[in-house]
Nucleic acid binder design. Structure first.
Lengths: 193, 193
DNA sequence: CAGTCAAGTGGACACGATGTCCGCTTAGTG
DNA sequence: CACTAAGCGGACATCGTGTCCACTTGACTG
């Protein structure tokens, strides 16, 4: 039984997260150093490392809340995200894409700080998304859902999204392109904008 | 007019590339350091940095030959890769995917060494692939080819491919999944394995 | 075949980030 | 108030990067 967190520890945890949030939002996340975060939070390096072994784990902690929210909705299933009465797999994948675009739009800096490169695919969150999409692919009787799932998630790589946005592509356009993908790959043949 | 490369310089260039090739193939490319390469090649750090500012540029130099070969074929167009008589955009995209899978299979270590993370999207090579795929998407009258092109390339991220292979997925399965993608997204509605 | 000079070499150096270690501080408890 | 262990924080050792510069060597020239 973890004997509960001490008050100063909790205070510092909050200070760290707040400072990190700020830094990630302000500067390029890749250039933010552990030392920067420690200084900004007003704590020592040791304190920082005690809880967070690296930058990624901090970003992940910041993301956790938001990702859990989506995961909840996926499981419980309000609206088209969940297993509502008469929704097709394609519709549900579209809804998932929309939710992810919103997440990317709001927190792309965090996602870039946390999960760039090969590490992204080993996250717990990625595993969750993957399982969900795989299930949808299987439900749509698509061939080889195991491989397809990863291919369907690939366009959600933070670097791809960020690049689109930087080039003036609106979130809505990205979303539309993803909806096309969903409908063309998982089923019904009357898609389109 | 570049006054031609000196003999010792050429010799060292060769030694560096050979050593780097070895190292990238042997160890995890991400852990290979500039110093390692210099030592393995038997040259000083200064010599190494003179020509290659970082690990990525070395990996790219090693890849160049192979990528140019594909680019040649794309432009000249032997077989279904190029603008042969009566090939559909979907067919040409499939052929492109096949070529890329072969490249990934043979050189995924180099690709991981060179182009992981956001940097991948800024490569000259990526720009080339992108232009090609965009053109195919446009030819197929797909909506928003600019965005779709990146989404079609996303599954070719080296980390995705490597992960599949590491989990025992055969190149052929990956290829099949990509062919499905190509046919479902760019046109003819008689796809499938 | 010298002589010369710039291209090329290589290692020492300064810097910055990482992660660890350990003596001190402080919150929580009886 | 005293005690104890969780928590703190900065000093330290280590490593990789990139730069700099005194020296070497290949190539050209008279």
């Amino acid at each position: 039984m973890p004997p509960a967190e001490r008050a100063d520890a909790a205070r510092n945890r909050a200070k760290v997260l707040e400072a990190a949030e700020q830094l990630f939002a302000t500067r390029d996340p890749a250039t933010v150093t552990m030392d920067d975060i420690a200084k900004a939070a007003g704590v020592g390096r040791g304190t920082l490392y005690r809880r967070y072994p690296d930058r990624a784990s901090i970003a992940r902690a910041l993301l956790d809340a938001h990702e859990h929210e989506i995961q909840e909705r996926l499981l419980r299933g309000e609206g088209p995200l969940g297993p509502e009465p008469a929704t097709t797999p394609a519709e549900r994948l579209s809804a998932f894409y929309s939710a992810m675009v919103r997440l990317l739009e709001r927190h792309s800096h965090l996602l870039l700080g946390a999960e760039t490169g090969p590490a992204r695919l080993t996250t717990g969150a990625y595993g969750f998304w993957r399982a969900h999409v795989r299930m949808l692919a299987a439900a749509a009787h698509a061939p080889d859902p195991d491989v397809l799932a990863d291919h369907l998630l690939a366009p959600l790589a933070p670097e791809v999204y960020r690049r689109h946005r930087d080039q003036g592509v609106s979130p809505e356009r990205v979303e539309a392109a993803l909806h096309l993908l969903a409908h063309r790959l998982l089923g019904d043949r009357t898609p389109n904008s």
